[in-house]
Design a binder for these strands. Structure first.
Lengths: 163, 163
DNA sequence: TAGTTGTTTCTGTAAATACTGAAATGATCG
DNA sequence: CGATCATTTCAGTATTTACAGAAACAACTA
């Protein structure tokens, strides 16, 4: 009963912040993330208060349904986290503290199918097949990369321990 | 005059190779690469002979125009390279020897705009702005990542010197 | 239980993208 | 300079995808 939240106002943004949000939006759009999703991420980067879906919708001038689907993606990828407040049934969202590590972790995991494909095809080929060498090379690369991603994350986490 | 190349035949592929090509196609489709482009890449992975556009078209059952546009992308990204033969006006293509390194290198370069965005917005914010810390964190992460990509590539190249 | 509010799902539409076949361009050869 | 052949560009079509608004659903509250 305490939050009477008359109409959920949009977040006040400076011109620079708005520009940043749009830039982040198009940047991630190039990586296949829907524009609204990218903008949301940008918004979370330049603000710290957890935001409700309604605030997101108003601030980004997008529909509630788009916010709903896009926020789900961001949460699923570990970029954003849901925050709740006792006695308030609205859900709020904010940048996940480990967002960047998560991006990396996801990327590492996406290497697994690639490695599997390489290994599977290698099993079917005779060792003297002309392409054997380059497929082996591919498998080696993917393994190398996955290992280094793991190492890299460990170094980062050591340098930036979770408070 | 010497190559009379009656009709450019499709590459003969085993069932496993065909399956591999399709798998690679859908894998890279998830990363925003057109299906035909991904299939071409897969084809180059399981073959070694340079292939003409006509052979690619026939083998992958795609139009010449699609091959043209997609091969351009693969070459631009350094995944595939063009090969020519004296006295033959057809162009051939094959997997670039440094394809995997190139993937990494591209990724590293794509971090630059992200770093720029972070640094630019930081310049406009007072140090006590609530989001200052997390934007600094972002900039640190991107820098860290770019540096480690560079290192990683160096290690790889040392281990796999170009013959 | 009825009413209120927050969230998701559904349905349709607009926009973007991939792809093809045909036309245009370019390059080489007689 | 034609003629031939390889490649690219163009124009149209089909498919996919993002998005919005409305309906459905869920969770709480009086």
């Amino acid at each position: 009963m305490e939050s009477f939240d008359p109409q959920a106002e949009p977040v006040a943004l400076s011109a620079e912040q708005s520009r940043f949000i749009e830039q982040i939006g198009v940047y991630y759009e190039n990586f296949g993330i829907p524009r609204i999703g990218g903008r949301m991420f940008g918004l979370f980067l330049v603000t710290t208060n957890p935001l409700s879906a309604e605030e997101l919708a108003q601030t980004l001038k997008a529909s509630r349904s788009s916010i709903s689907t896009n926020v789900r993606g961001l949460v699923a990828n570990g970029w954003v986290e849901k925050v709740t407040i006792a006695g308030d049934r609205t859900e709020y969202f904010r940048l996940a503290p480990a967002a960047w590590e998560q991006v990396m972790e996801r990327r590492r995991q996406s290497l697994t199918p690639l490695r599997n494909m390489a290994e599977q095809i290698l099993e079917t080929l005779p060792k003297d097949h002309p392409a054997y060498g380059q497929l082996e090379h591919m498998a080696t690369w993917v393994t190398f990369l996955a290992q280094h991603y793991t190492d890299l994350l460990e170094v980062w986490k050591a340098q930036h321990p979770r408070r």
